[in-house]
Amino acid sequence: MKQSRDFDLLILGGGMAGMTAAIFAARANLKTALIEEHACGGLANWTNTVENFPSHVSINGMELMERVLAQVENLGVEVDQAAEVERLELAGPLKEVETGEYLYTGKAIILATGRQPIRLRLETDSDRIHYCSVCDGSAYKGKKVLVVGGGNSGFDESLYLLSLGVSQILMVEALKECCAAETTQDRLRAHGNVEIRTCTTVTAIEKDGQGCRVTLKDRTNDQSRSVYVDGVFVFIGQKANTLPFRGVVELDRYGYIVAGPNLETNLPGVYAAGDVVQKDYRYLTTAMADGTIAALAAEKYLRDAPAGEV
């Protein structure tokens, strides 16, 4: 029998949206628990430099999120990290989150589970395919790597790989143009050892000695060519972390939560915030706005509910 922990509000996910919601909930005197599967910080932890966050010209993503977490903990929020969720009950008046260690209950819940990187969908025998340049980039000092994806992550991570001493980067982007911020693109393109190919996809990766042989397809003429690289780093976007909510919470065709103007979902007392919500723009700043609104809406829901109903 797991120990029960009872709260006014549960927040699932400790990225910027979840932590902002926790700050507002705590300040509204809601007894709040924040449950995070890995470490608080979300995708921002994977961002080497954040340059679009007001008040910081440039800051490391993990450093920024550590400051937010300190603020959350200082307000007395119960923060449970490395908490693996085994069961969810969202439909009833009392929301339940069962982790490997505890049974959390709350009168309302905010789903802020964010997104996770999309994996390359290729069968391969290579163990040289990576999704984290900070974790694995040091092994490629003086070597050539392929970066898949020409978005902000691809460019930002390429700059980081160069700073580690990677000698050559070949970047491929499936679209006609790279969609990263112009300033970041300019910074990477200024390096002489970076080649960027658009309209190009990866169709095969095979182990080849200490590195791998990659087949690239030019989408303008359907011609393929093979290149040798020492390693491959993949940054091709993210997908919503909503698998546990399927069939319970209304999702759009891409798996994002459909939420109303106050981030209410189709279930009473269940709110959503941050990247996991169906919307056009996903940034730290929009996640903060979502966290704020969801927490205030949850607080109003709890305040307005007839006594004994929640």
Partner: peptide, 16 residues
């Protein structure tokens, strides 16, 4: 590594 996100997540698990 100090700023490695997977290291951070693993450290939280190791705390437990």
């Amino acid at each position: 590594k100090k700023l490695c996100p997977n290291c951070k997540a693993l450290e939280k698990m190791l705390d437990k």
